[in-house]
Amino acid sequence: MLEVAGLEVRYGAVRAVRGASLAVGDGELVALLGANGAGKSSTLRAIAGALRPAAGSIRLDGQEVLGTSPERMVRLGAAMVPETRDVFPDLTVGENLRLGAFTRRGDAQGVAADRERMLAMFPVLRERQDQPAGTLSGGEQQMLVIARAMMSRPRLLLLDEPSLGLAPTIVQRIFAMIVELRRAGLTILLVEQNAAQALAIADRAYVMRQGEIAASGPAAEIAAATDLQQLYLGG
């Protein structure tokens, strides 16, 4: 579904991503691991169209999408959940979800059905539908941004650090949701620092170090590899 080749992202003189290549197949859950600053988020943001890469190729269903605007990427079926958990704080939970379905005008029935599905999956959001999203707890906000992204009915979900700053029990629930979404047929690219937990649910994984892909393979193999620590620490 997604093929990235030779991706380069620069911030001024800093090369955050240096020729990274990766692929995600239909229905796969792929984890992208690495230490802070390894270039994972930049890679994900580049795929989502939120920043413009300096070079490389990004193909979605075989079609070149490098440099495509973020709004167009959503229409092509790739939805992004950024690590900053950007709920719109002054909009209610319901309004946030409604915006998630922005691209699906004319499909009121489908939107209503998906909304129902998301509220069933995250019951706490139903309770808080009319509250401003800014009043939600961190975990609830994380659920909201995932549910909101799902409202565009994406085929590929780009998840950036969903565990960041959350209590372990909440993280477990969120990861359970991710597994459930994947079981329903969604393709997921998951960026995580929390390697153990990500590897537990992923099919395959890539490890990034200093902007490059340092290792890749089935999740079990990566988890078993003894040099994982080393890869992380950049040794």
Binding site: A48, D90, L91, G100
Partner: peptide
């Protein structure tokens, strides 16, 4: 809604397809 969202966070609104 889209305009209010864009006022709060333009990039995020775009990432929802606005």
């Amino acid at each position: 809604l889209a305009m209010r969202a864009a006022a709060a966070n333009f990039t995020m609104a775009r990432m929802l397809g606005v």
